[in-house]
Design a protein around this nucleic acid. Structure first.
Lengths: 95, 95
DNA sequence: ATATGCGTTAATTAACTGTTTACAATATTA
DNA sequence: TAATATTGTAAACAGTTAATTAACGCATAT
């Protein structure tokens, strides 16, 4: 019953972690990635990879799992929107 | 302190869910994917996608999160093996 | 021998991340 | 006002990956 609502894109959440006066350019520099890559992530134009999760955790002092987990939930939500194949549950002999 | 050891590839775990006499060909048919796709997954030659997690959950009666979570842990483990950039923790004013 | 079924590999396609470069629009500052 | 900085976006490129179909080697059965 949990996770019923459209999960936020990890980039949206990341925005809230950036200090008020920190520019995207500066943040990208500290994360040692290109400004374009960070911009796309922040604006939901790219996914959050495992490598990026490690960078964020090192920078922000979180666990990488948090970030990657957000991406996972996002991916699942997107996948659920697609037409689903009609898969018959596996018949187990003697449940 | 958890997840210290090399996590199993989701395909390895999936193997244990297949009934003894079930062939890869038959399982692929029920999952409505090609036999090649399933074979590669089972042998760790491909990752477990969100769409696949939904198929598996429909077929095996689990949550999709379980499968996708395994892939997440696997991805993280692999990413940790790569050379990591030296990222300085973000200086927060007044922690 | 012939055919059928099985699992894996090969080749191809499509999609995606990340980079650099470039450009337009908007802010900031001198 | 004029110069500078920032941002979002796009194009082009390289590298990776999932998925498909075709093809291969191997086994088993007819």
């Amino acid at each position: 019953m949990s996770r019923m609502h459209n999960p936020a894109h990890p980039g949206e959440v990341l925005k809230e972690w950036l200090p008020e006066q920190m520019t995207v350019t500066q943040a990208a520099k500290e994360l040692q990635i290109s400004r374009v890559t960070l911009s796309k992530l922040l604006n939901g134009k790219a996914g959050l990879t495992a490598a990026m999760a490690l960078r964020l955790s090192a920078w922000l002092g979180t666990t990488p799992d948090v970030w990657l987990g957000m991406q996972t939930q996002w991916d699942l939500w997107q996948a659920k929107k697609l037409p689903k194949p009609d898969i018959k549950p596996l018949e187990r002999l003697q449940a």
